[in-house]
Simulated scan of single mutants.
Amino acid sequence: MKSIFDKCKFGDLTLKSRIIRTGLWESQQCDLDAIYERYEKIASSGVGLITSELYSLYPKDKFTEHSFKMDNINFMTMARKLAEITHSYDVPILGQVEFIKFNRGIDLDIAVNDLTIEDIRKIQSDIIEAAQKLQVAGFDGIQLSVGNNFFLSKFINPYYNQRDDDYGGNVFNRMRMVLELVKVMKDNLDLHVSVKVNTFDERKDGFDANESLEACKLLEKVGVDSIQITRPLSPLYFTKKLSGEDELVDYATKLIDSVDVPVIVGGGFDNMMHMNELLNNTNIEFLSMYRPFVSQGDFLKQWEANGEGESRCLKCNNCYRTKTSTCYHFD
């Protein structure tokens, strides 16, 4: 019988459980000790892998106010300390690097179709530089978002991408920028490269499940180490009143049969019994959680000790909407 607390291999990493903590917003940029305390609680809880909060690639991006900027004078200090904390509990850590807008000098928010080849190379080199910083800081890997509503998810989406060059058209061409980027990182850096991909896009003529499967197969071919599946505005789908879990699980089982790299599945999970049932009744191996760790960083300790448990998170989505790394109800 599989359990969320199984020790297991995750590509080139060894995990002490099947639970991946996914970060999002960082509202404590000015209080490094508070960040360290939060990560210590999470790392000591029995979690298998930690994905950091968003690290902002560009200083004038949409979410820089709610994320730690990679050009912040304290970034490397903070990153080194987080790697030290998580590794002291034998927990690997990935840095989540994202951006919404690409600015070219005084030209702000350049659209996908208006990027020059020089712009594409600039984005690729900026992400590679970010990955180098993470490696120097001692992180085990990088997670790159080609999902949710971040810039790269738009680049691969036919709803946004109508380019008529080598970076537009079919799925391979729309994925080309990301594929080139992953290959360079795998060839030159000693990092686990994880990519977050949308299962589909709700827009008409947008990125659909078949294209998503094709994109993930291409990522595997260029050396990606793991894939996390998501969807735009994902926390809003997984509430007490509305659940998109069945749809996500159906897609995940197809993807897992199609690729030979670990696949991380999220979906508003908050109950140990339900999660163990999912592990034992499907081919899913790794489950991600976001809001439960905001509500209570070390809840997994209680679950493992009791052999059961349910998160106290109310799924109110206040942390998501207000872009905070702390809980409105319990902090």
Rank of each mutant, 00 (worst) to 15 (best):
K9F: 12
K183L: 10
R80S: 11
D33A: 08
A34I: 01
K133P: 05
F299S: 01
R231M: 13
V136C: 10
I227G: 00
I35R: 05
Y290N: 12
S145V: 05
D119A: 04
L218C: 07
I256V: 15
P158E: 08
M1H: 11
H66S: 14
V182W: 03
S243R: 08
A137P: 00
W25Q: 06
E211Q: 13
L191M: 06
D90N: 12
K186E: 00
N161M: 09
L248H: 12
R231Y: 04
G297I: 12
E310H: 05
I73H: 09
N173T: 05
E308M: 04
E180G: 02
M76G: 02
T282R: 02
F68L: 14
D331V: 14
Y251E: 01
E98P: 13
L314D: 05
L115T: 10
T253V: 15
M78C: 15
Q143Y: 02
S3P: 08
K323N: 11
K2T: 13
F139D: 00
L134P: 14
A137W: 03
E129S: 14
D208L: 05
I20H: 00
C8K: 07
E214I: 10
H87C: 08
G307E: 07
R174P: 10
A131Y: 02
G138P: 07
C316L: 06
I50C: 15
F299A: 07
E277M: 10
K183W: 00
V263L: 06
H274W: 06
D166T: 02
L32R: 04
F330T: 15
M70H: 08
G46A: 10
M78F: 02
M76E: 05
F299L: 14
A79G: 08
S67Q: 11
L179T: 03
S17E: 05
A252P: 07
F155S: 00
D126C: 13
S153I: 01
E304R: 13
D331Y: 12
M185C: 10
R174C: 12
M78P: 00
